[in-house]
């Protein structure tokens, strides 16, 4: 709690500390990565005592958005910090905002990270590169279904947008 200091008897929370807390909040659909890894947290700032967290949705219709908002509110409430959420749609979320750590975590979890070429680079299970697309869509709006022709396992691919 090095970032917390006492000021006139009040506990003051810093923005860096809020970022640390949010870095531990898992994505509701892909719990292997955090909301910060996913790149949906666009800003943390204090307005007096209230922490204003700016959030951008991944897909405009993603049902996880409501759960993400609730998770942020819960995380800050757990630390006694009043929070206000600000939804921001511009600039639109892009998979470029997924952190390098987030990409590694996705791959380790069995989801091939997004590639600018539009398809996965390698099978997240065996590393094979003989891959085929099964469907452009998958179990959540952000994923597509692919299969590795080396190990024959199907896997999720995080769509590049």
């Amino acid at each position: 709690m090095a970032a917390t200091r006492l000021s006139g008897g009040h506990v003051v929370t810093t923005e860096a500390q809020v970022w640390d807390w949010l870095a531990k909040v898992p994505d509701p659909e892909i719990p292997a990565i955090s909301l910060v890894d996913l790149g949906v947290i666009r800003g943390v700032a204090f307005d007096g005592d209230t922490c204003v967290v700016t959030v951008t949705p991944t897909y405009s219709g993603c049902p996880a958005t409501a759960v993400i908002n609730l998770s942020i509110e819960t995380a800050l409430a757990d630390h006694g910090v009043p929070v206000r959420l600000k939804q921001q749609i511009a600039p639109p979320w892009t998979t470029d905002w997924i952190s390098p750590e987030g990409r590694d975590k996705l791959n380790a979890y069995g989801i091939a990270p997004p590639q600018p070429a539009g398809g996965p680079a390698a099978c997240p299970r065996c590393g094979g590169t003989h891959l085929e697309k099964l469907s452009q869509f998958g179990s959540t709006p952000c994923k597509a279904q692919w299969r590795c022709r080396d190990c024959l396992e199907p896997f999720d691919y995080f769509k590049c947008i």
Partner: peptide, 9 residues
Amino acid sequence: NTALDLLGQ
């Protein structure tokens, strides 16, 4: 998923 995108929009 297509329907969901459209409803989000």
